[in-house]
């Protein structure tokens, strides 16, 4: 059994999800190779080589891979696929874009958002916004799956694997015109120990600053409901939920969020959930460990003061 893991990175640094996908792969007790495809991404490859359990790091370093486009990356992966029993990537926007394309080219099915690996063929993944867990047995020769990073603990950086350069250049027919990233000093949602999320009730982008202050005091990240993102209070990549980020921090504080099924799908595996809402009937209270029925405009400043 040999697993190929596709590394998640921005050409400069390795993203935290990869060490969690490697942890998932390690449960299969086979060799693990990691593919780093990017441009000027040597530092990323070095970070990968240190991760425990990695046998080899395959590096395709060329400008054609800079924008992480699915059409040429899929061909690159398929070209390397022979000999691998499993191909995994994190269930991030890049992994979700790429892996179905890889699976289709290999004529195998794909399993999305794996949260548990029972054996080499058997995987558990959520369906219906996490309201059911489906256990499937794959009948395919190669198992292609995205892994939900929040369900696995990262492997430590204790190793020193070999780095192998791949001299394969495949062009994409697409071109990247622009790439805007939202710079933030705060931890990434997937990595944060604490997340403070705000909903529609915040009412404005300015009011979100209150949550940022609270998050900063706790060393945490800021998240949001879809309603808050749609209203333009905060950037889209901070949406938590069925169709946004899936998170499981130690502490999740939901402020002025009602707790729709689609929002719960993204945060209900958090270790401790706090809900602040002025409506005692709000469904968010059903998943909260600590509920506070209060006006957020009074409760949040007070919380900032007391912490």
């Amino acid at each position: 059994m040999t697993v190929l893991v596709i590394a998640e990175h921005d050409n400069v640094s390795l993203k935290s999800e990869t060490a969690k996908v490697i942890a998932a792969a390690a449960s299969l007790a086979g060799d693990i190779d990691v593919l780093v495809a990017g441009s000027a991404c040597a530092a990323v490859a070095e970070s990968v080589a240190k991760l425990q359990g990695v046998s080899r790091v395959l590096v395709a370093d060329n400008p054609v891979y800079k924008a992480q486009l699915a059409d040429n990356l899929a061909k690159l992966v398929v070209g390397q696929a022979s000999g691998y029993s499993h191909i995994f990537a994190a269930a991030t926007s890049t992994g979700k874009d790429l892996l179905p394309r890889v699976a289709a080219l290999l004529d195998v099915a794909m399993i999305s958002e794996v949260v548990k690996i029972e054996d080499a063929d058997t995987f558990v993944h959520p369906i219906y916004a996490g309201n059911a867990l489906e256990k499937v047995k794959s009948l395919d020769a190669v198992k292609v799956a995205t892994v939900r990073a929040s369900a696995f603990d990262a492997v430590p950086a204790t190793a020193n694997a070999a780095i192998v350069a791949l001299d394969v250049v495949i062009n994409s027919v697409c071109s990247e015109l622009a790439h805007t990233t939202v710079a933030s000093e705060r931890p990434e949602l997937g990595n944060a120990r604490v997340i403070v999320s705000g909903g529609r009730a915040l009412g404005s982008a300015d009011n979100f600053a209150m949550l940022e202050t609270l998050a900063d005091k706790l060393g945490g990240a800021v998240g949001a409901s879809r309603a808050a993102v749609d209203a333009g209070y905060i950037s889209n990549d901070l949406q938590v939920g069925q169709t946004g980020k899936i998170v499981a921090p130690e502490l999740y504080i939901a402020v002025g969020i009602s707790g729709a099924i689609q929002h719960l799908a993204g945060m209900k595996d958090s270790k401790v959930i706090v809900a602040i809402n002025k409506d005692p009937q709000a469904p968010i209270f059903q998943v909260a460990d600590y509920g506070l029925e209060a006006d957020l405009f009074e409760a949040v400043p007070k919380l900032v003061e007391l912490i």
Partner: peptide
């Protein structure tokens, strides 16, 4: 390509408590 072995409900979270004030929280 696949066999569905089981479909189960997710683990229930254990019931939480309501707190009366920010201090208590």
């Amino acid at each position: 390509h696949q066999q569905i072995l089981a479909v189960t409900p997710p683990a229930e979270r254990k019931a939480g408590v309501m707190v009366a004030s920010v201090e208590e929280l």
